[in-house]
Design a protein around this nucleic acid. Structure first.
Lengths: 337, 337
DNA sequence: GGACCTAGATGAAAGGTTTCATCCAGTCGA
DNA sequence: TCGACTGGATGAAACCTTTCATCTAGGTCC
């Protein structure tokens, strides 16, 4: 183990050239004669030279990394979004740092601060609270921020999201077309814009079919988790058969999977006793014992596009903020047919 | 937007103090009088001062971050390991960078190089190939490396893993005790040490019960994925009923979930027609329609312990490499009873 | 009143890389 | 033979923070 890592200076000494030449070998190899280059490279190999990225960054003023602050590391949806971001970053030879706020505003703040201190090129974030002030300050101080899978009032940021109202509409329309007239909407907590938008879409589908809002019964949950899905299932099945919905639309797939499990455990048959539609179309939705009908969001594409917007903003100073909205798609599977 | 971020020098000028004093406010606030401190802090706020982490690192020689290079971002098992690492890192006020090699050696190499250039405190990795040379070079050059969820010959690294032979034994013994005498082992590709170890454990359980190895039939897969699990299910059910196993032990939960789905689709009853045991006990195993019996690995704990070993190695120069092996635990659920 | 302390403030130096203006030694043309 | 040019090589300066030896002013004690 070397006591101190070799620096360009050491390499220069070993190769018998100036340190500027070593730097040229690294950054503009064409300006260096082949012999010199060979000598320098040999010296690097002998000394096990490794570039010091901190020093590069200090000099350059910015790092060559992006960051994604994801909302919930245990939801595969976000892992897929991250993967899309990574692909875009890779294409530009940038690194991606992934942080996980785990739905806690306090962790999110810590990460945002650190990332700003790192001088990352920019930050992609699915925020705990899209209206948090910190999201304004960062761009004001020079670190671009793109909001992923959320929207935000005003035209202060670029954002990439999916049309949740339309998604809700697709899901509900599908159930209505299958003849269901008593549909449960399972989701919460309500302050989440997505939970509300998807419900709005469902109401729209009802209205379009000439049905009143009473055909959709709300079953609130405290979070969008498998466990909450199970609990919702219990409550649902607890209802007297006459007033029990024949179909359920869940605000995400985790809820739907929990619901599905609870229903199977309680000996209900899916989709005969209860048709289920989820949201997100995570891989585990297709992998469920009764494959889940779900509203697919273009997860990778979401990440990819967000990264592109970020890079555009990072390179072009007078850039116009853009709100990209993707279109969701219904994927019909066994849980509704 | 400021043309250039404010530096300590700017803050010092604004507050009418020397730059050393600003640094003291940041790093040793007790050595600064309250009035001065207040003045400096006001100046910082006015200028929107943000520490430059590159410069700190350059000065310090090392960054204050760990990194985890995970093998497969789409397997929730690794997300949980990462979460454990994060907890340990958080406790020490370190950042964690998570990278995802996605099972590709070439991505892994890229990330390792970058992380070394970043001078991270150390690297945790679940390697594509535990015997890769690069894993030796990093520690030789001063960046400690801890191997997670894999083991490696020799005593060259710290590593944290779970006793896979024992896990296989637990799974198979459980099935044997339930009366199964014709058990499928589903897993592959074979070069994976874990796939082999878990099979070895299963054979051991058979032997202990006085049963020959012919009671375990091998069904190879090309990867440990849901899709491969489905395919294995097709092959399994395709067998004539007389020679069809009555139970299956899968090398991980993704395979088991795919198998479960295929069986349900083909109208087999779980566990009556086929009992299934998975491995890893990811959350989705418990959430399956027929909750999956699985061998639980202490995922968070795995990550946490690995991070601790890494920090120990990073701080203590003459540190002894340690191979931690955790004990797995069988979690019995509906898929076997 | 002088010696001694102490809390607080100072600023130069170091850390590794990149850039850029400068320099050097050949080569070519006239 | 001289001047102009060129491909290469050079090294000082800048990037920003932290540390540490040094300095100052005010207070305490005899």
């Amino acid at each position: 183990m070397t006591i101190r890592a070799a620096s360009v200076k050491d390499v220069a000494a070993r190769a018998g050239v100036s340190l500027g030449t070593v730097s040229n070998v690294l950054n503009r190899p064409d300006r260096v004669s082949v012999q010199t280059k060979a000598r320098v490279e040999a010296a690097m190999a002998e000394l096990g030279f490794v570039r010091n990225e901190s020093a590069r960054q200090l000099r350059a003023g910015r790092s060559s990394a992006l960051a994604y602050v994801m909302l919930d590391g245990s939801n595969p949806f976000f892992a897929d979004v991250a993967h899309g971001i990574e692909q875009a970053a890779e294409a530009q030879d940038l690194s991606l740092f992934t942080c996980n706020s785990n739905n806690r505003a306090e962790r999110e703040t810590v990460y945002l601060n650190r990332l700003e201190e790192q001088r990352v090129q920019g930050i992609l974030i699915t925020p705990v609270n899209p209206d948090a002030e910190a999201l304004d300050e960062l761009p004001r101080r020079g670190t671009p921020v793109v909001i992923v899978d959320r929207t935000r009032g005003g035209n202060t940021h670029c954002s990439v999201a999916v049309d949740d109202v339309l998604g809700g509409e697709l899901a509900a329309r599908h159930l209505i077309e299958l003849g269901h007239r008593h549909i449960a909407y399972i989701g919460g907590p309500d302050p989440l814009g997505q939970v509300r938008d998807r419900r709005r879409g469902a109401h729209k589908a009802l209205a379009d079919a000439g049905l009143g809002p009473e055909h959709l019964v709300d079953i609130g949950t405290e979070a969008l988790t498998v466990d909450e899905g199970r609990k919702a299932g219990e409550r649902l099945v607890g209802r007297p058969a006459s007033s029990r919905p024949t179909a359920a639309f869940c605000a995400n797939d985790l809820l739907a999977l929990g619901l599905l499990q609870q229903c199977v455990a309680l000996r209900m048959s899916i989709p005969d006793d209860l048709a289920i539609v989820g949201y997100d179309d995570i891989d585990f939705a297709a992998a469920a014992a009764v494959p889940l009908t779900s509203v697919r969001q273009p997860r990778r594409e979401l990440g990819r596009r967000a990264a592109e917007l970020l890079l555009a903003e990072a390179t072009d100073p007078q850039h116009e903020h853009e709100q990209v909205v993707f279109t969701p798609e219904l994927v019909v599977r066994g849980s509704t047919r």
